[in-house]
Computed example of a mutant assay.
Amino acid sequence: MEDEPRPGRPVTACGDANISKVLVSLSDDRRKTCEEISTETSMSRTSVFRVLTNKLNNNKKFSKWVPHLLTDEQKESRINFSRNFLRRFQTEQNDFLGRIITGDETWVYSWDPETKR
């Protein structure tokens, strides 16, 4: 089974060339809006948004584009912390567990994020 040829131009908005354009623009300043990136790259705002969210897995947090997934360094750091905790537990047993302080996962920011103004 094969697709029959269809008229029209193939979709190239999310191609490798456009992804690299968006990456270059974003590397200068992660606080850029989709509109600013679209004027720099000569792409539509929707295409820029699609590249940022679908292809690069970025989210807009506190007016800054950040990767949705952990970086390799963050993953390695978590593995190292877990290994150190396991090693300490094996040597100290229950004494180690008594020294752990836990809390809820509520994040309270005491600073205001930078704005473009």
Rank of each mutant, 00 (worst) to 15 (best):
E2F: 13
E2N: 07
E2G: 05
R6T: 04
P7T: 12
P7K: 14
G8K: 14
P10I: 13
V11W: 10
V11Y: 15
T12S: 12
T12P: 00
G15L: 07
I19P: 04
S20V: 00
K21Y: 09
K21W: 05
V24S: 10
V24H: 09
L26S: 12
L26C: 08
D29T: 01
R30C: 12
R30A: 14
R30L: 09
K32F: 04
T33I: 07
E35V: 05
E35L: 07
I37T: 02
S38Q: 00
S38C: 04
T41Q: 07
M43H: 05
R45L: 03
R45Y: 03
T46V: 06
T46C: 06
T46E: 11
V48T: 05
V48A: 02
R50M: 06
R50C: 06
R50D: 09
R50H: 07
L52C: 05
L52V: 03
K55R: 15
K55A: 05
K55N: 08
L56M: 15
N59W: 02
K60Q: 12
K60Y: 10
K60F: 13
K61M: 11
K61L: 13
S63G: 10
K64C: 13
K64A: 11
W65Q: 00
T71M: 02
S77E: 12
I79M: 09
N80F: 05
F81M: 06
S82K: 08
R83A: 07
R87T: 03
R87Q: 06
R88M: 12
R88W: 11
T91V: 12
T91D: 12
T91G: 06
Q93G: 02
N94T: 13
D95R: 12
F96V: 01
L97G: 09
G98W: 09
I100A: 08
I101R: 14
D104P: 10
D104H: 14
E105P: 02
V108Q: 10
V108I: 15
Y109H: 11
S110M: 09
D112P: 00
P113I: 00
P113A: 01
K116P: 03
R117D: 10
R117P: 10
